[in-house]
Write a protein that binds this DNA or RNA. Sequence first.
RNA 1: GUCCCCAUCGUCUAGUGGCCUAGGACACUGGCCUUUCACGCCGGCGACCGGGGUUCGAAUCCCCGUGGGGACGCCA
Length: 464
Amino acid sequence: MRTRFAPSPTGFLHIGGARTALFNWLYTRRHGGTFVLRIEDTDQLRSTDESTRAILDAMTWLGLNWDEGPYFQAERVVVHRQMVQKLIDEGKAYYCTCSSEDLEAKRKKAMAEGRKPKYDGACREKGLRRSPDSVVRFRCPEMGVTVMHDLIKGNISFNNEELDDLIIERADGYPTYNFAVVVDDAQMGITHVIRGDDHVNNTPKQILIYEALGYEVPLFGHVPMILGSDRARLSKRHGATSVMAYQEMGYLPEALVNYLVRLGWSHGDQEIFTIEDLIHAFSLEAVGKSPAIFNPEKLLWLNQHYITACPEEKLLALVTPFWERKEFDVSDRRYAALAAENLRTRSKTLVEMADSGAFYFREEVDYDPEAAAKFLTTEYVGYLEVVAERLPGVANYTKDGIEAFLRSLAEERGTKLKWIAQTVRVALTGRTVSPGIDEIMVILGKERVIRKIRRAIDRIRAGG
RNA sequence: GUCCCCAUCGUCUAGUGGCCUAGGACACUGGCCUUUCACGCCGGCGACCGGGGUUCGAAUCCCCGUGGGGACGCCA
């Protein structure tokens, strides 16, 4: 069994493409087949090397390794031209000199008149020869029915009269998609073509080309589209669509993979899947037929799940670049690891984790104005002073020891722990929301804590 | 417009004629825990698009509507 993923290098790998690649990859791994990567770069104008690289990077980041390739379609034009010639020789294709402008005008007219815009066959029987601006068209049968057997959608049949004589070779001598894809898939021995729903209408034309060329027709599987919240095709308007943008936003590849696979596919009530689970459980029969709407909240939830489940060293390795990006000194790995552990249950993304951990790495506390106005006041400064004074004498400097210390202080002062904790919290982190104050104090260490508290006291004494 | 496809909570989905007073998850929401937040735990809200059939019995099968998506390029 051989499958392929065949993106065109005209942009980044997007969410939809990634899911198609993932389904291909899982199906192939499940059945022990060979996964081929082919770059469809026959559009000379829009294909770029940067896009190719970006797509490869994204595939790698997601863990979708390929067994063969990447092959570049544009490097195979000689083969494509041979096959075009073969069709011409056999009378199954012909030259056409209709201009793009004429065709466009005819298309518009047909649409306006409520007809299906379809090539009128003007050059079909002219017996034209190759000329500088001629293209080659495939001679489509005008009657009969072509049926596609789809692994996801079941049988779909098309009346051949609906199909038209599509261009298979452009004036620039490069093959068009519908032709190149057939030649390449056939010659690369692809047995299962798993791709987006938007290709369903291309399939009958492709089947006809397979047959004209004497190739065996592969099995198809068309996966439904991913839509945005307004049910329109997913686009930038709905937020990030590039896979690598999710890496930058602090998502784990496991989360994206898990989210994407559940978009259209399910396995009973299971929500969380490891790659191993997926390889064992995945099947195209369980892929739904209807389009799915991309839901960023659920992806966020999964990301949080994977951050929570991530092994300690791995989590540290993952956040570190995000901290470095903020120019924090994270050279003390033991300290950084403690900070990461402390932040994990309250971070939905690595970016969030990096941001909320700023107080661990910056000497200067960035006080939230509202928090400071409420707690860094002469009313509460006494709490800070007593903490700073007595902290050096706290022998049991642990989470429990610190909590006991703060509680006894509250009792002594006739107040609730809450008020002391919040004041200290703002002094140490700059905000009213943070991890447990005792945990923070343990990780920061006595010296750092005292320094930060003294600085807060100075700030209050200076009048805010 | 023409052709193709699809249709269960707001969203992702379970469900393949009786197990369904329709299950799970996200989101939302009430409570518990609590030094704030988060996590966690317990509870709540919330759907079979409509109409006809078939059947003893339909979310499940058929037909017609309606709605949504896709395709209609010398893009892929």
